[in-house]
Design a protein around this nucleic acid. Sequence first.
DNA 1: CCTCCGGATGGGATCGATCCCAGAAAGAAG
DNA 2: CTTCTTTCTGGGATCGATCCCATCCGGAGG
Lengths: 345, 345
Amino acid sequence: MAITLKDVAAAAGVSRSTASRALSGSPLIASETRVAVKEVADRMGYRLNRVAGALRSKQSHVVGLVLNNLINASFHTIAEVVQRRAAAEGYQVMLCITDADPRREESFLRTLAAHGVDGLIMVGTGRNTAMANALLAEGIGVVNVIRAAAESAAPSVLASDREGAHAATSHLLDLGHERIGFIGGLMSANSGLERFAGYEQALRERGRQVEDSLVERGPFDSAFGSEATERLLRRNPGMTALFAANHEAVFGMLPTLVGAGVVIPRQLSLICYEDIPWLRWWQPPITVVDNGAGELGDLAMNLLLQQIERTGRSAALVQAGRTGRAYRVGAQLIQRSSCARPSAG
Amino acid sequence: MAITLKDVAAAAGVSRSTASRALSGSPLIASETRVAVKEVADRMGYRLNRVAGALRSKQSHVVGLVLNNLINASFHTIAEVVQRRAAAEGYQVMLCITDADPRREESFLRTLAAHGVDGLIMVGTGRNTAMANALLAEGIGVVNVIRAAAESAAPSVLASDREGAHAATSHLLDLGHERIGFIGGLMSANSGLERFAGYEQALRERGRQVEDSLVERGPFDSAFGSEATERLLRRNPGMTALFAANHEAVFGMLPTLVGAGVVIPRQLSLICYEDIPWLRWWQPPITVVDNGAGELGDLAMNLLLQQIERTGRSAALVQAGRTGRAYRVGAQLIQRSSCARPSAG
DNA sequence: CCTCCGGATGGGATCGATCCCAGAAAGAAG
DNA sequence: CTTCTTTCTGGGATCGATCCCATCCGGAGG
């Protein structure tokens, strides 16, 4: 059997209460006693039983992380950052992968609650907002990342997709491009909607309009990127720049461009959304809009820790009936070598 | 306050014992009682408190997953698969990211034990095998994936790196290539060692020897891939094929090849290790050795569940003083269009 | 009619830590 | 010397489910 606090207390010649105080860093204890108990504890190889602690104190030191998948670079970056920050603060992370399925999401929320998590960070589907709000009301911390339903009472950390797309498009316009292709995501997704809006807005600000023949929108996968690129090239010989706003599609677009013999940036300027390491190693290095996935995760974790630390704060938010404050992490245009002025011919 | 089993029992007019039996699917109960209690429970919105359950029954329904990072495709694939399988079996996953740092690994093992995990799957550094064996002896399930120390008492699920590299190299030799470049990982890593061994073996079987000028070995990152590719091209004008055995390096190699104007497969045949979606969408689609990351995760989870289900089985293994059985997931050569016979000139 | 058996149920103890309250020890103030 | 703080410690209750043991009941068998 494992060594329990009782054993340590007995060995150290103090009561369980005192031993508990010594090891949990309570101020209500003489420092010599603390040292003595600690010494005994790790001589015996004592290991705190967090399960027992969680039952009594209602603090599990576990947080949930709910997201669609780990394939998408933004998601696994967030997962890594959240895990690291959590570990550094003494929390463990329960990982839940929903595949963007609301039913799975609901089941995970229920299960996380059953495990007594202190809080959770979610890339929500938006279909279980009521349940998430209920958890919040129970005192479980909740933070939305990337997506947030309007009725969510929890704070949200969002990317600046619209601004990012606006910056990218403006940059291309500044260089003198007139016919800028757009490959984006479905309008049912938040990112699809906002990035297209940013593209449109930048064009309108220069007195231009969106040309339908320059726009391709589709699912988040590389096959679509490949096909969309082919269609755009075929349809628009005059296209001098391309804005890839659908991350997954990029994996299909780049090889297709290479295969078509398109020289970047001489024949075509290119900007991609969401930075990933190897885009910097491409030939030529690709200009990107960095959506700040790491910062999204970091900020989300900060907000969650805030809620957890001041217990009841999250519950209070709900009672006030207010919807959660939204935070935006700025998008950043990282200029590399894939953009140039359009060539005369 | 949340609804407890006591509340449900009271509402249903039975004792806590009976209520517990009804909801946990014990056979020692009349089926009408079971139905009645269940009905009451979900009418009241009862949620089992797994923390309390874990304390008493020593079954937390949580498993740990310890790995280096989530950037590497094999790792996040394993993480996804393990999470999915775990969820389907009623388990939750605690995610731990070690960065391959033995100190962090040790800390995580300790913490996972403190949280009472039923078992854990680890991509180990090999420096905490004693501790992992100790956990196994305590009855916590342990399974190694990808890497396994010789002294580990836990079963291991390993990739067939040597065979995979052998198959790739043999394939190139079969096509008639004589000078095959190799870009691999550090020999301190298991995969680096075995893949090189496979390359060497295939050459030797054909009466050839490794030419040092054709070999580049270095860290697992894209910068190295880029530099290594440049060096190989400069040094070996006669190189007609290239085997990329370092996954991370691939991200640097491909763009460098494109930049150098190397036509694949006419000028150079190429095989990469570890399949990732977009290699299929490359122009031309790249022939790869699939190390079966998904299967690795799946098999590891199966072995873990086996250990957990028959309690004490893992402990018994240790007592016998035997080292854990090793399982191999076969590597698979997926032929696409990046390999051809060397051109005459 | 009584005993025995097996299925079904109830009550108390238990897991291991933390919380709460009472109280001891030591020092300060009168 | 007494009284009152202040500081520290101990013991019991507690968190919520599960386990173990005792009991109860109806029916079968003697």
